[in-house]
Each structure stands twice: as C-alpha cells, then as structure tokens.
Write a protein that binds this DNA or RNA. Structure first.
Ligand SMILES: [Zn+2]
Ligand SMILES: [Zn+2]
Ligand SMILES: [Zn+2]
Ligand SMILES: [Zn+2]
Lengths: 160, 160
DNA sequence: CGCCCCATGTAATTTTATAACATCACGCGG
DNA sequence: CCGCGTGATGTTATAAAATTACATGGGGCG
C-alpha cells in the first residue's frame, strides 16, 4: 500500500500525466472527455487537496464555463463514476485520482492542518475490514476509508 | 473484530441496555443526560440503521420536544462527541453506538438494500491503513471506515 | 431531413448544517 | 437571598451541499 501526496515532487507532471492518462482511457473506452470535464479534472489536479463542488464551480464561472451547480456536479459525477476522481465523504469534497486507470480500492490520509490528501491503494478483501465482513456474512461492494490526522510536515510544525 | 446488527436478537434489550450504559457513564463523568439527549438516543437505538438529523427532528417535533434543527444537531453532537452515537459520513446520518463505553475505533457495514448498519470494532494502528500511514509518516487521529454492500439477508433475497 | 443520444444551460427547490442571539435552570460564593 | 457564571434550550435566520426538472444544442446515422 503506497501513498503519494505528502512528498515533494514534480507537480507539473502530476497534472500533465493525469490529464494524459485520463484522455487515453477515455479514447479507449469511448467516453467523452469534454472541455468542462477536462477543466474540472485540471482544477482538481492542481491541488493535492479536496475541493468542494462550489469551489470548483466558482472557478468555472470565472472562466465562463458554466455557472450553475449541476454543471460542476455533472462533471464530478462523470469523473468519480469512471474512477478519475474521488469523493472524500468526510469533507464533502472531491480530489483527483493519483492512480487513474488502475484497479482501485483507495484509502485517504487527510491532514487536518494543511488539508493535504494522500491516496493509498489497498487490497479490498484483505485486512481487518474484509475479515469483519466475512465474519458477518456481509459482501462489501465499496468502502469509504478516510483517515484524518497530521501529515509529516504539520507534525514538525506543531511540535515546535 | 466482532459485529452485531444483522443477526436476530432481543432488540428490546438493545434499547434498555444502551440507555442504561450511557446513563451510567454520564453519571460517572458528570455529563448531563438530559431529556432531549436521552430521547434522541432512544430514537436511534430503536433502529439498527442510520437516521438523518431531520428525520430525528421530525420525531422530536411530534413529541413536542423541540422543532428547530439546532435541537437535533446539538443532541447528536453531544452523543457523537461522547461516543454514544456515530455519524455515518457516507449517509449524512447517525446511528447509536453498539459498544458504548468501550474504547472505540469503529467500522461500519452498511447494507444498500435494507439500510441496516452493523458496527464492528477495529484495532486502530494495525492493518493496512495503519501500515500505509506509518509508511507515509502520517499520524492518524481518527478514521472513517464505512463499507457498503449487501447483508446476509439481502444477498439471499437478491439471489432468488 | 428526422431522429436519437448525450452533454450542456438554467431555474427552482430540497436537504443538510450552522450562526447568532435570547432565555432558562442550576450551583456556588458572597 | 442575591448576583453571577456555566451549560442547556428555544428560535430566527442563513449558509452550504446536492438534486430535480425542463429547455437547448450538437453529432451520428438511417
Ligand atoms: Zn503533485
Ligand atoms: Zn499537513
Ligand atoms: Zn437490536
Ligand atoms: Zn440488507
């Protein structure tokens, strides 16, 4: 289970690679990667933090790409449904996927101080949750795994 | 990691025992288990499913116990803060705790067909999530673990 | 062209949650 | 008993998040 997002990195390639990967996958699957959808993904990719739908909508509005809530929600629905973005339930907010195209059982580490969010990959059926489900005879179709706490950077700050 | 909620059981004792346990803990810790708070907990205990704040508010209103949103939200805040109830982020709804008083790192199994919710206890620092956090240098303070799927009963129904 | 399918534009509304301020009850020191 | 602080409630208003419903537009295809 690896995780990115707290470490320094070439962030412009996050954006370029993210768009490129999604663009490729859309072509492959016959999905329409329209201007609004592309722009919303770009906006999300610019941050390693979660943005609220209305925060995204504000940016779209500034650019003349749409001004009513459904515009943002529809683009986000598309991205989430196809695994290009994720909703962080705890925050009512959305984040670009850092592993687009891959299989997908994400978990999130959310820093309460700087709002950074890292995405980690899990093995769905393994671990405590999978075991608890088997014990209960429950079949998991989808799981929300969101941890809140302090990222390495903010731990050092608060220790000072 | 055990879980209750999907199995048949003496449900009236769920309610009585739940109230009694919380009542005892409030006495012990000097917390005020007021009528509204007690009634909200009773309402939650009557179901092994999550209720929205406004759903609870409706019942309070019928009983003349309060009619504005803050009444319900304040009672729920109290219950959640003290570990007597939990918020299910995925549903924007609340559920009574089935292990009041105990240490508390809950995970939830939510049936999408019948809305039943089971609460399981986890070991916070163990498992995949704990490992991912350690790898990333992240310190978890709180985790939201919510699995969605089919409970045993509803699997049989849908198989038919 | 006429049609379907999908994406988009827009208005209105619903659902969820909080802010702000007034009031009340209880306990405690003076 | 009074005055005061603290915490719970009552009430109004508003904010924030999400959806419903209906109108419009553009591309592919027979
Ligand atoms: Zn980056
Ligand atoms: Zn941080
Ligand atoms: Zn029960
Ligand atoms: Zn079920």
């Amino acid at each position: 289970m690896d995780s990115i997002g707290f470490a320094p990195h070439d962030h412009s390639s996050c954006i370029q690679d993210g768009i490129a990967a999604v663009d490729a996958q859309c072509r492959a699957e016959g999905l329409q990667f329209t201007p609004v959808r592309r722009r919303v993904l770009e906006i999300l990719l610019q941050e390693h933090r979660a943005l609220g739908a209305y925060e995204i909508l504000d940016r779209l509005r500034e650019e003349g790409l749409g001004s009513q809530p459904p515009v943002a929600y529809r683009a986000l629905d598309f991205l989430v449904k196809n695994g290009f973005a994720h909703k962080i339930e705890r925050l009512n907010a959305f984040i670009a996927c850092t592993h687009p195209g891959e299989s997908h059982a994400p978990a999130f580490l959310i820093c309460r101080a700087c709002d950074a969010v890292a995405e980690a990959q899990r093995e769905p059926t393994q671990g405590q949750l999978g075991q608890a489900a088997r014990d209960a005879g429950f079949v998991i179709e989808r799981a929300v795994i969101e941890a809140e706490g302090l990222c390495p950077k903010c731990q050092h700050k608060s220790a000072a």
